[in-house]
Amino acid sequence: MTAGPSNATVDEGYNFAFLDEQTKRMLRRAILKAVAIPGHQIPFGSREMPLSYGWGTGGIQITAAVIGPADTLKVIDQGADDTTNAVSIRSFFRRMTGVATTERTPDATIVQTRHRIPETKLVEGQILVYQVPIPEPLRWLEPRESETRKMHALAEYGAMHVKLFEDIVRFGRIETAYDYPVMVNGRYLMRPSPIPKFDNPKMDQMPALQLFGAGREKRIYAVPPYTAVKSLDFEDYPFQIEKWDQPCALCGADDTFLDEIITDDKGGRMFVCSDTDHCEQRRAAGHRGTGAPQSYVAAVEGGE
């Protein structure tokens, strides 16, 4: 699945990875600072990128700052390599760097992601780059940046628990399902970006470096390898991840985040791994689920 370096398609009119070297240095300084203070948001001079704000410009700038010719890049959106925005970002970097790209998580040195952490465990030496829409976890209760920065500086985080408290008051459980707030290294409150809370435990003590980029909001933050990341909760309402009643219909996995696929207009549906690469690897290794309904297989294959 790994595509080799394809220099023929590289756009010679631009610097390697689009950004000029001064800008990359600025970004690397911000990244180093972020790594040094895990979970702390570092303001940076976000550039206007040729992709829209809100569509991954923060992640793209980080990837552009850390990528080198020897890297292998994987880009996912919603866990899948072939969603339109992932395709668009991957082709942007192919055009601007000529580096190898891959869909296989173990083969990637850099994984840029929107909304998921791969199911395959990341290892030392890999970098996971998150696209972040709103970096500030305290924003829901305090719209003012000047005040939230103070609250971080003084670790005044009581109000964040008030939000979870209110969830239990209203719903009898903590209702926050994604972008679930975490404490990093016991000090900074952090938004993990809109990943499902299912992915939160993967952040804790991860051997890979995790970098977070918010382009529109002009913030970079990081979780260095092997850092404690704890999801907020109450002693009597401990943090829990979602579970499904059934395994993946394609690969039979019962420990992955599942997407719900509507298979017909009569209420038929199936659940499959949101991480398409992980699902494919499992099937290649011989794992099988119950399979998709025949009517759906026929419709999809007929349509292609």
Partner: peptide, 10 residues
């Protein structure tokens, strides 16, 4: 952009 994962969680 797709928000399948967030929506699935909700």
């Amino acid at each position: 952009l797709p928000h399948y994962v967030d929506f699935q969680s909700e």
